[in-house]
Amino acid sequence: MTTSPTAPTSLRERKKAQTRRTIQEVALRLFLENGYDGTTVEQIAAEAGVSHMTFFRHFPTKEAVVESDDYDPMIVDLIGSRPPHEDCLTALHHALGEGLRAVYAADGEALLTRTRLVLTTPALRARVWENQYATQQLFADALGGRRRGQSDLAVRVLAGAALAALTTALTLWVESEGARELPDLVDQAFLALRDPDGN
Results as ranks from 00 to 15, higher is better:
G49E: 07
R148G: 09
L28I: 13
V174T: 06
E63C: 08
E25V: 13
A27L: 10
V50W: 08
T121W: 01
V65R: 01
E42M: 14
Q43W: 05
F56N: 04
T171A: 14
I79D: 07
V66P: 01
L112G: 10
Y71P: 00
M53Y: 12
R148E: 15
L117E: 03
G108S: 07
V50A: 12
P183F: 01
A162T: 02
F55K: 02
V50H: 11
D187E: 10
H93P: 00
D197Q: 13
D187C: 00
T121A: 00
L32Q: 15
A105V: 11
E130K: 05
V41F: 01
R82Q: 15
I44A: 08
T9E: 14
Y133V: 14
L153D: 11
D69I: 05
T167K: 02
R57K: 15
A162S: 11
D197S: 14
V155Q: 04
V118A: 03
A189L: 02
Q136K: 13
D77S: 13
D77G: 12
I75E: 05
R57L: 11
A126P: 01
P60F: 01
E33R: 15
A142I: 06
V66M: 04
R156N: 11
A164L: 03
R82V: 07
Q150R: 14
Q136Y: 02
L172P: 00
D37I: 02
H85S: 14
Q43T: 09
F59P: 02
E13F: 06
E33Y: 08
A106P: 04
A179R: 12
N131G: 13
G198V: 12
G144Y: 12
S51T: 15
R146I: 10
A91K: 03
G198R: 05
A106H: 11
L163H: 01
Q18W: 11
R116E: 05
G80F: 03
L30I: 10
V76G: 06
P196T: 05
A189V: 05
F59R: 00
T22H: 14
R156Q: 13
A162D: 00
A189T: 05
F56R: 07
F59C: 04
G149Y: 06
T115H: 03
R180M: 05
T9L: 11
F59E: 04
K62Q: 07
